[in-house]
Computed example of a mutant assay.
Amino acid sequence: MDLNTITEVARPQTRSELPVWTAGDAWLAGGTWLFSEPQASLTRLIDLVDLKWPALTIDAQGLSIAATCSIAQLDALACPPDWLAAPVINQCCRAFLASFKIWKTATVGGNLCMSLPAGPMISLTAALDGVCTIWQADGGERQVAVTDFVTGSQHNVLKPGDLLRQIDIPLAALKRRSAFRQISLTPIGRSAALVIGSLATDGALLLTVTASTKRPVRLSFARAPQADELREAILQAIPDDDYHDDLHGKPAWRKAMTLRLAEEIRNELHTARP
């Protein structure tokens, strides 16, 4: 869609060239949502392409994902063999309700910043202990865990002029054995519940609930819980009002699916233990 209110497109090449943020500005990365509907309040786009951030960086600390990394680039990542959580990366990439064209254009950062409950990059990075680096409008920088970055449906901690720079995934999370479950109301519909579990080397179970809830919910167990213990923990951690309600699923159904998927993950990871 043409954005006929735009009068300027800025193309900074370094952080120092980022223009002073004003009302009517918008960051442009993939633009898959930005160009999908009228944006009558916008007058200037700040294109991030020329910043040339490396899409993916693997080092001794883990994996760094640039906010401008496309979903296709992330899916194509060749992961080291000891990254037991690698399959979850591909599974989350394929949890998008999107065509292949969008897949090649949409960005990881854009998915987080939209902060939709069904955002699969939120699911992935929250489950893998991701930490967001935010370039603040005042020139500063701060780090926020993905589980705290998203505060509700289409709400997050970004202030006007703040820019999500990258998401860092620690090596320990990438080496955890993980399990993925996702369900939609229709065969190729938007995720109504997406649950990811992982098993630490000391036997601790980590469970991340997304899509069914308005924001990511993390549960942690020092050891593999029994079925009733897991169910009760989820019921305590997620009040009924925290389940999302839209045409892709009613709260009661999302709650039931969350409990079901979590139990499937508990069984899978418990069985997989050596």
Score class of each variant (00 low, 15 high):
Leu207His: 08
Lys159Gln: 14
Leu235Asn: 14
Ala60His: 07
Ala10Thr: 04
Arg94Asn: 15
Gln236His: 12
Ala179Phe: 08
Glu229Trp: 01
Cys93Trp: 00
Thr14Arg: 07
Asp25Cys: 09
Gln91Lys: 10
Ala126Ile: 05
Ala200Ile: 04
Arg165Tyr: 02
Lys175Glu: 05
His155Leu: 10
Thr186Phe: 04
Gly31Asp: 09
Val195Leu: 07
Thr125Glu: 04
Ile188Phe: 04
Ser16Lys: 07
Pro81His: 15
Gly189Ala: 02
Asp245Asn: 15
Ile65Trp: 02
Cys113Thr: 12
Gln166Arg: 02
Gly152Ala: 14
Gln39His: 06
Arg190Lys: 10
Leu171Asn: 10
Gln61Pro: 01
Ser212Trp: 06
Leu28Cys: 09
Ala106Asp: 13
Asn4Gly: 08
Leu28Arg: 12
Leu205Val: 13
Gln39Ala: 05
Met1Tyr: 10
Asp162Ser: 09
Lys159Leu: 13
Val49Ile: 02
Arg11Asn: 06
Pro54Glu: 00
Lys175Ser: 03
Gln154Pro: 11
Asp228Pro: 05
Ala262Arg: 09
Arg218Gly: 03
Phe180Ser: 12
Ala76Phe: 13
Ala86Asp: 04
Ala237Trp: 03
Asn267Arg: 10
Ala224His: 02
Leu48His: 01
Thr14Met: 08
Ala256Glu: 15
Ala86Trp: 04
Ile183Asp: 01
Ala55Pro: 01
Pro81Leu: 15
Asp241Ala: 15
Ser198Val: 03
Pro19Gln: 09
